[in-house]
Nucleic acid binder design. Structure first.
Lengths: 139, 139
DNA sequence: TCTTTAATTGGAAAAATTCTAAAGGGCTTG
DNA sequence: CAAGCCCTTTAGAATTTTTCCAATTAAAGA
């Protein structure tokens, strides 16, 4: 896919989400939404941007990831103390988390079924159910 | 319950776990395991210890929480970017997480059922399944 | 195009956690 | 019960992760 077309797609995406198509967002969006789904940390995305000649500060990477998340373009997945992953897959799904390697792996929503949901606490409404299956390297 | 008995219980717990019963561990253990189950952050426990005339450095609180967790006396629960909770309830159970308040609330293991488990990725073994039900304040 | 207005950016600061090297304290052995 | 081994604690600094806010930049209207 040509660079121009990649940017055009990202541009479209940003417009739909009501986000200004700035240079930084276009660059990060291109990295995130090109090719298949991804699990990235802010730090990873930041250094990846640097490698691609895109000068973007780490703070902007955080801002952008949060804005994309708020706009429903991504999901935030928290599995480890002091580290957030951002997932470009926004379909209903869950995760394997490799305790030893820190890797995340998607589990299609249909492969996990949560039954017997308890009732919500008073005055609250359901936001989302996260299932994280922690695995470690077999002995 | 008398202080003496409280310490005796914690002492027993530490011995079983193979942890030296130091002054600091006894003080923190007493705070953690007295009364009902608790969800605490390192910072919370640290200031609580200070209020109870127990001089314990923040680094030691972190060390102790991790040691207790490794010894199976507690569980670490990660729900928010940049913050870890430690849970004194080690029974099979899951959590409600209040997105707005940051509060955690236990769900008994029998109230949530995860079925249709996918097979583990190659070369991995199951460690644990975490279910976090995110709720927000009702409109 | 120019101006106004509001969103965006990134350096700096804050918050959370870990590291380090020196001092302290349990526990075993003699 | 003293000596010594070695695990623990500690304070401070370093590191890592995340957020704040003043300067900048983009969008909209004239």
């Amino acid at each position: 896919m040509s660079d121009t077309r990649a940017y055009a797609r990202t541009l479209e995406r940003l417009k739909k989400a009501g986000l200004r198509p700035t240079r930084q967002r276009l660059a990060l969006g291109k990295l995130l939404f090109e090719g298949g789904h991804r699990h990235v940390t802010a730090e990873q995305l930041h250094s990846e941007a640097a490698k691609n000649q895109a000068r973007v500060s780490l703070a902007t990477v955080y801002n952008t990831l949060h804005q994309f998340t708020e706009a429903g373009l991504m999901r935030e997945v928290v599995v480890e103390a002091g580290r957030s992953y951002f997932d470009t897959n926004i379909d209903d799904h869950h995760h394997f988390f490799h305790v030893d390697t820190g890797e995340l792996q998607d589990i299609s929503g249909s492969d996990v079924m949560v039954t017997a949901m308890p009732s919500m606490p008073m005055g609250t409404a359901l936001d989302r159910v996260d299932v994280i299956i922690r695995v470690r390297s077999a002995a």
